[in-house]
């Protein structure tokens, strides 16, 4: 099969260096620090506004998730089919469980 034989040439082998990994971990550490700071609402009073708090936390979570999956799990360098398969599971899970929680009036009380 042509795709099979062409593989080793087209394969992208530029993995990040160790130093890159440390930098990513540094970013992750900073993001986590911000996350934890939201806990101290009395210091950072704007986090008392719920939508600001929730948005901040969700954005940070997604970015952390994304960084680990893309960089540490090498989805960035690997074949797209791996990202697709993982995205499929993730999207499916998000979809069915959001709908379930919705059916339980989890988000809006009727």
């Amino acid at each position: 099969m042509s795709e099979a034989t062409a593989v080793s040439e087209t394969h992208d082998d530029h993995h990040p260096s160790d130093w890159d990994y440390v930098k990513i971990a540094g970013i992750l550490a900073v993001l986590t620090t911000i996350e934890v700071l939201t806990y101290f609402e009395s210091v950072f009073t704007f986090f008392e506004t719920r939508w600001i708090l929730l948005t901040t936390l969700f954005v940070l979570m997604v970015v952390k998730f994304w960084l680990v999956a893309r960089m540490f799990m090498h989805l960035k360098q690997d074949k797209p089919i791996l990202s697709q398969s993982f995205a499929a599971g993730l999207a499916l899970a998000t979809g069915v469980y959001l709908v379930t929680l919705f059916a339980f009036d989890f988000f809006f009380s009727a």
Binding site: I81, S85, A88
Partner: peptide, 22 residues
């Protein structure tokens, strides 16, 4: 020599992780 260019083991692990999301 695999059609996708990914070894069987790695593909299997990723599939398994996808199912773990559920």
């Amino acid at each position: 020599a695999t059609n996708t260019g990914i070894s069987n083991n790695k593909l299997a692990m990723w599939l398994f992780l996808s199912t773990e999301c559920l």
